[in-house]
Every structure is written in structure tokens, then in C-alpha cells.
Design a protein around this nucleic acid. Structure first.
Length: 491
DNA sequence: CGCATACGCGCC
DNA sequence: AAACGGCGCGTTTGCG
């Protein structure tokens, strides 16, 4: 068995030289991440210090790896993490290696045009902004921008928040608030949007296109505290989708001739998990009958029939549903919904009186976390949250919010990981794997594939079935699929 | 000059 | 005082 750090790179190396990677391997970093997903640094040096209490310079790397392996094996068993490690995380390593190697095709010529187009728009906006400001300054500096807006132009500061360092905030929320107080603000909002897209996506993406015309992200399997993956260089998990310009960026992701892009999305996976974990009858019934969960929630908190739910009511209910998963309080709900704090409180209270089991489940999770110092999801995935018992109220509250979120986010993460692992042998059985069907991206609750056109129907049905049956919840798991020639236009 | 931090913002 | 969970990354700014 291959025991080492960063097995994913080693698997890729085997493939590069045309050899078969070892069937069994043990990634030390990932093992220790399961033991403590908040450690952050999973290098041999750090793990030796933290877990073996040894100076890494005093022993050979081989010896340290051996000792780290022995300790990890013991602890994985003790914490009942073996299934997760051997059956999910380790097989996932090779799946991720193949996805990274596959990459995703980029339309570079299109990106170049988009870049130029953005240049033109940004130049116009800069000119307008300087004119309205009565001089030049660095628009990208929140400090300078704050001075211009509130000192030089004397825009009314009513309702404007300060940052934690006392600076006047110039974030989007602030600018939106004051956008009718001075014409410069509308231009600033537009500038921000376009500059962000250009500097974060359009420019770097062009740089990162390889000789194969594709970008290859790196998935970090030890990158989160909840069990999710993260993606870097480039991060393909935060490519814009909202807004006309954002959508344009997504169109740069294309497919090879003869292929289609297919996106498979777990529908409301976190709320389904929450319904399942809490056993809340109303929420379970909603999913069992495949109802619109936000609409159902609206009908309940507003005490009206489903037909009487307005779009505005549904919007508030949606915010509530998401907020509940995150442990949101009345303050935050008021801020994001535009309600007063009193109204927000009323809605949250109403929510929890409609979905009593959710409240009970959350209180139980919080109590367990305080008592034991950690929280676990259904598969034994564990996060240490000793701060839940802190005497500092805000620190304890922060840990409690993380605690009620982790079993939900963490189980959703497990489900898609299990699906990814199951997909490979099923697609191989069909003889599709790697040549006719390639798994390209994973974006938390979504998988993106490149599929040969001639088998698209059959392949989509199979992938959907595998994803939906990857895990058994107390409610059905539903996957929605979309296809297209680029990532920005799927239907 | 590199590096860390603050701020801001894209996604699920 | 804080107030919504999980990420990665670009630009600015101040420091050594």
C-alpha cells in the first residue's frame, strides 16, 4: 500500500508515465483532516509536531510517516471514521485526479473579446466617475473611495455602517443604500461589477489555459471544516452565474466537438438533509410530495394557502430556509430581508413553531456540541468545536452556528462524494468512462460532465440514477439535469 | 521588495 | 460586541 502525502499528485504521475496507479493507498493528510478538519496545515512537519509531539527535524521523514500512519490508523478506528476514509475519501482521490487531469475547455478567443469589451465599459465608467468626483483617485481603494464619497462629495451618511477598523464602509450594500443620493454611486456599482469580473475571472482564466486549451483546477480535499471540497488555481467553484455580465463569463466554458456539457444539480439537498435529520413532519411531507419548499414555507409562516403565496412571500421564506440552515438570528434576517428587527423576530418564531422538530434538532446538536466538544454528521464526520462551551457568549454562539450547520453541509458533501465514487465503476461498465463520459467539475451540490452526443440520453439517465440513489435519506433525493454547448447556456 | 491584513465579492 | 454556514482570490495598504 502506498502511504504518503498528496496521493492525488502521485496518482497523476503514474498516469503520466503510462503506469497503473496503486489500487490501495493511504493519504496521510486526508486521514488527519478527518481527525481534525480545522487543523489547516496537513504537512508532515505540522502533523508531527501537533499529533506526535515530535520535532520533525529530529527524525527521518520515513520514520515520521510510519508513526503518523500508525497513529492515524488507531484514531480512525477509535473515531469510527474508517468507512468514510477507506470507502469514500480514498476512492475519491483518484476520481479527483482524473477530473483535474481532464480539465475543462475554454474558449480563449471569446474570453479575449470579452476582456476587450469589459475594458471599454470600464474606461467609460472610470471617466464618468472621475468627472463626478471632480478629480482622479484609486476607485479600487475603499479608503480613498470613502473619502471621496463622504468627505469631498458630502453624501449623506445616514444608515451607512463602518467597517471593523472604523472606516466608512463602501461595500455593495452601502452603495445600494446611497445610490439615489448621488449620480456617482450607480457608476461605482457598475464599475465594481465589471472590474471584479475582469480581474478575478476573465484575465486569470486566460492565463491559466493550458496547451490543451483547457483549465485544470486543483481540488483541495482537506480544504474545509465540514467535509466539502474546495477548488483553487483557478477556483472553479465560484464562477459567476448571476447577472448578464457574469453569465457571459460562464459562456467561456465550452465542450469538445461532438460532446455536450451536462450539469446535474442536487435539488435543495441541504434542506432535504435537514428535513431528514430533524424528522420534521411538515418539511418531510413537502419533499415526499415534491412540493416547492420555499412556497410551502411561505404558506406556513404567513398562514395562507399555497395558492395565496406571492413572489415576495416566497422570497422571504427562501431567505428564512437558508438562514435556518446557517443558524441565522433575527438581526441578520432583518438585514438581508429588509424587515424590521421586530418583524424578523416574529417570522423566525413563526418558522420554528411551524417546523418544531427543526428547532428541537438544532437545540439537541448545540447541547451535544457543548457537552462533548465536537459535532458529528450521520457518517461520523467530525468537527471539534470546543468554543461551544466558551464563557464568551459571542464565541460560543459562533461555534453553535457552525455546529448546527456542519451535520447538514457535511452530509450533503458526503452524498455527492459517494455519488462521485460510485459513478466511476458504473460508467466503466458501460465502456464510457474517460472517453465518452468525463466528469469535469464538482461544485458542492452539482456535477458537471462532458458527454458524447450519441449517448447523451442514456448517459444522463444513468448519472442521474446513480446520484439520486447514492444515499438513502428519509426523503427522496432529487437531481435536476441540464445540457448545453457552454456552461452559461444550459437547459 | 515580499508578506500579511483589510476590504470586498464571486459561488454553494 | 456580535448578529449567516462553507470557501478562494483580487487589490490596496502598511510593515519589516
Amino acid at each position: 500500500m502506498l502511504t504518503d502525502f498528496n496521493i492525488k499528485e502521485k496518482i497523476k504521475e503514474f498516469k503520466r508515465i503510462g503506469k497503473k496507479p496503486p489500487a490501495e493507498y493511504f493519504d496521510l493528510g486526508i486521514a488527519y483532516w478527518l481527525l481534525n478538519p480545522d487543523e489547516g496545515d496537513y504537512s508532515l512537519e505540522n502533523l508531527s509536531k501537533k499529533f506526535l509531539h515530535k520535532d520533525p527535524a529530529a527524525s527521518s521523514r520515513q520514520d515520521l510517516k510510519g508513526e503518523l500512519y500508525n497513529y492515524a490508523v488507531k484514531k480512525l478506528k477509535e473515531y469510527k471514521l474508517e468507512k468514510l476514509f477507506y470507502d469514500v475519501e480514498m476512492p475519491l482521490v483518484s476520481a479527483l485526479a482524473e477530473m483535474e487531469d481532464a480539465g475543462i475547455k475554454i474558449d480563449s478567443a471569446y474570453l479575449k473579446r470579452l476582456d476587450k469589451e469589459l475594458d471599454g465599459e470600464i474606461k467609460k465608467l472610470v471617466k464618468a466617475i472621475y468627472k463626478e468626483a471632480g478629480g482622479t483617485f484609486n476607485i479600487n481603494s475603499p479608503k480613498q473611495l470613502g473619502e471621496i464619497l463622504f468627505k469631498k462629495l458630502k453624501i449623506d451618511i445616514a444608515g451607512v455602517k463602518k467597517t471593523k477598523t472604523g472606516q466608512i464602509s463602501t461595500n455593495e450594500q452601502t452603495l445600494s443604500l446611497i445610490k439615489n443620493r448621488h449620480p456617482i454611486v450607480k457608476h461605482l456599482l457598475e464599475y465594481r461589477e465589471l472590474f471584479k469580473l475582469q480581474s478575478t475571472y476573465v484575465r486569470p482564466l486566460q492565463e491559466l489555459v493550458g496547451k490543451d486549451g483547457r483549465v485544470h483546477t486543483t481540488y483541495i480535499q482537506t480544504g474545509t471544516s465540514t467535509g466539502r471540497l474546495s477548488s483553487q488555481n483557478p477556483n472553479l467553484q465560484n464562477i459567476p452565474i448571476e447577472g448578464a455580465w457574469g453569465r457571459k463569463v460562464r459562456r467561456a466554458f465550452i465542450v469538445e466537438k461532438g460532446f455536450m456539457l451536462a450539469a446535474f444539480d442536487y435539488s435543495q439537498i441541504e434542506l432535504r438533509v435537514l428535513a431528514s435529520l430533524s424528522g420534521d413532519p411538515k418539511m418531510m411531507e413537502a419533499f415526499n410530495n415534491d412540493l416547492d419548499i420555499h412556497k410551502l414555507t411561505a404558506a406556513n409562516v404567513f398562514n395562507v394557502s399555497l395558492e395565496k403565496v406571492t413572489p415576495e412571500m416566497r422570497r422571504l421564506a427562501k431567505t428564512l430556509n437558508f438562514g435556518v440552515v446557517y443558524g441565522m438570528g433575527a438581526f441578520a434576517f432583518a438585514k438581508t430581508s429588509g424587515l424590521s428587527a421586530v418583524e424578523a423576530r416574529k417570522f423566525i418564531d413563526e418558522y420554528f413553531s411551524d417546523f418544531k422538530k427543526i428547532k428541537e434538532w438544532q437545540e439537541e446538536v448545540k447541547a451535544q456540541t457543548r457537552t462533548f466538544g465536537y459535532v458529528m454528521n450521520l457518517n461520523g464526520r467530525r468537527r471539534w468545536l470546543l468554543q461551544a462551551a466558551s464563557m464568551f457568549r459571542s464565541e460560543a454562539a459562533e461555534a453553535e452556528r457552525a455546529a448546527i450547520n456542519m451535520p447538514v453541509q457535511g452530509l450533503a458533501a458526503d452524498i455527492i462524494k459517494i455519488a462521485m465514487v460510485k459513478l466511476k465503476p458504473e460508467l466503466e461498465k458501460k465502456g464510457w468512462y474517460g472517453n465518452q463520459v468525463r466528469m469535469l467539475l464538482t461544485i458542492h451540490d452539482e456535477l458537471l460532465f462532458e458527454i458524447k452526443e450519441n449517448i447523451i440520453k442514456e448517459a444522463m439517465a444513468l448519472i442521474r440514477k446513480i446520484m439520486e440513489s447514492a444515499y438513502e435519506l428519509e426523503v427522496p433525493i432529487k437531481v435536476t439535469a441540464k445540457i448545453g454547448k457552454n456552461w452559461g447556456e444550459l437547459d
